[in-house]
């Protein structure tokens, strides 16, 4: 436990230093590189918290792809920011107030690892225990029916016993990965529309930029032709 805490403290301190460096560096190329490093540090912090999913995403998107995309954008724009006053007092005040409110909000949260926290006692536990889907061999069709059975007590055991129709079925009717079962089953609609949003973003970019690029190709072609003619 102590090692985890120590690692977290070191990593978070480094992350804070990097964050300050990102906003204080004038050269945008350096800022991009520092932001990539910051993402890499954050990935290590997520890993340290056992949030492997988030660590994956942070390392691949934050440190990898977004750095490449920022570099691509930088090649189209300049590499240096405009000179601005060092401290914008209004913005600092706003950030301070927002940060203060957020820290005040965390005071209501349970201590990390507290066994009496709602996540370990409330209906989340029942939801983790139940089947992800909606159809069950015992005539339990919906999660809320299952929950009501769980509340009644004795039938709950029967329902759970009925959940192992196959001895080699190690995940007993639902995905053992909570994140995936939530994203793909409970919230399948959400994930579908998120995918649609990504698709729409890509297509919007294609419509906006590819046409311009093709136009540029034509321009280049015309220029070459003109040069040949000349």
């Amino acid at each position: 436990m102590f090692e985890v805490l120590l690692t977290d403290m070191v990593l978070l301190t480094l992350a804070a230093i990097l964050a300050i460096a990102v906003i204080s560096v004038r050269n945008l190329l350096s800022a991009t590189m520092l932001a990539g490093l910051y993402s890499l540090l954050m990935a290590m912090i997520w890993q340290n918290m056992n949030a492997v999913d988030v660590a994956f995403t942070e390392a691949a998107v934050g440190a990898g792809i977004s750095t490449v995309l920022l570099l691509g954008t930088l090649s189209h724009t300049g590499r240096r920011t405009k000179q601005r006053p060092a401290v914008n007092w209004g913005a600092l005040l706003l950030v301070g107030i927002t940060g203060g409110i957020l820290i005040y909000g965390t005071l209501d949260m349970p201590r990390i690892g507290d066994p009496n926290a709602p996540i370990h006692t409330g209906r989340v536990v029942q939801q983790l225990a139940q089947r992800v889907g909606k159809v069950d061999a015992n005539g339990v069709h919906t999660p809320w029916e299952y929950n009501s059975m769980a509340n009644q007590g004795e039938h709950f055991e029967e329902a759970q016993a009925g959940e192992h129709p196959h001895p080699e079925d190690d995940f007993a009717g639902h995905s053992p990965n909570t994140v995936t079962s939530l994203l793909a089953s409970y919230r399948g609609y959400d994930t579908m529309y998120e995918t649609a949003v990504i698709f729409t973003a890509g297509m919007a970019l294609v419509l906006l930029l590819r046409r311009r690029e093709e136009g540029a190709d034509e321009l280049l072609h015309d220029a070459k032709k003109g040069r040949d003619v000349a």
């Binding site: 089947r131 196959h166 079925d169 995905s175 793909a184």
Partner: peptide
């Protein structure tokens, strides 16, 4: 039903993966 769910989730994950991969490559 558990196997059906596993199959459905797998297909859905393939869908997400294909779209995300190709859109990222397109953006680059």
């Amino acid at each position: 039903p558990g196997d059906g769910e596993a199959l459905g989730m797998l297909l859905v994950e393939y869908g997400v993966g294909i779209t995300v991969c190709t859109v990222m490559v397109t953006i680059y």
